[in-house]
């Protein structure tokens, strides 16, 4: 089944759906930065406390992500091979910029995810983070985030990556429904709306955090 064109597109949709779910949960969790250090650090500690769930989720995400990237690249190569000689002139009629740049936006997101993991999860970009503790003795995630996003270069890279994520999702969300055939005249307007609203909400939510820290709206309690 997963050797067929339609089977692999369905797999692309299903893995993408799982990743989208994670992106939404991740954003909601992170928005606790607006509730202050205590809320965010307690949330981080709670996640670390649920080792089975945490590692289960990490493993699932890794598999979904790897499958999604692998399929994306494999399908792209096959699709190029299906037209060995291109047109001298070719005019697109209705494919959006998002549709035509899925591989590019996908690769940007891949690069960003690697950077993001190195930055906050493995503290490889700014290694001093690994040592920081808050007054309650928990890892001080809040101070780490605030310190990270006070750096305009890092904030800019996060914002740009989120814009690419939004572009990717603008094509991806309606595509998910198309690829598994979940379309119906009654629900198509809803699918179109979701295709705009979901990327907008995710980009707005994710971009608001680094920007409000960079501009000193959030995180004033953290020194230095």
């Amino acid at each position: 089944m997963f050797r067929s064109s339609i089977g692999r597109k369905a797999l692309m949709a299903v893995t993408g759906f799982g990743l989208l779910g994670y992106v939404i949960v991740h954003m909601i969790g992170n928005l606790q930065v607006y509730q202050g250090p205590d809320a965010l650090n307690a949330y981080a500690k709670m996640l670390k406390g649920m080792a089975t769930l945490l590692w289960g989720a990490r493993l699932t995400l890794l598999v979904l992500f790897a499958a999604h990237v692998y399929l994306g690249v494999a399908l792209y190569r096959e699709n190029r091979a299906a037209r060995p000689i291109g047109y001298v002139r070719f005019q697109y009629e209705q494919a959006s910029v998002a549709t035509r740049t899925m591989l590019l936006s996908g690769l940007v997101i891949l690069a960003f995810v690697i950077f993001h993991l190195l930055h906050f999860t493995f503290a490889a970009v700014q290694p001093e983070y690994a040592e920081w503790k808050d007054p309650a003795g928990r890892p001080d995630v809040y101070a780490m985030v605030v310190h990270g996003f006070r750096n305009p270069v890092i904030t800019t890279s996060y914002v740009v990556a989120q814009l690419f994520l939004g572009l990717h999702l603008y094509h991806a969300v309606p595509s998910m429904f198309q690829s598994v055939g979940l379309k119906h005249p009654r629900y198509n307007p809803l699918i179109r709306t979701l295709g705009v609203v979901i990327p907008l909400v995710i980009v707005a939510g994710n971009v608001s955090m680094p920007l409000s820290i960079l501009f000193g709206i959030v995180g004033t309690s953290v020194g230095g």
Partner: peptide, 22 residues
């Protein structure tokens, strides 16, 4: 029909929807 379509070496659908326009 899908198996034959794949065997003929056509590409996969990326939902460009250029087909519909043409």
């Amino acid at each position: 029909m899908v198996a034959q379509m794949d065997a003929e070496g056509f590409g996969n659908c990326s939902n460009y929807f250029e087909c519909e326009a043409a």
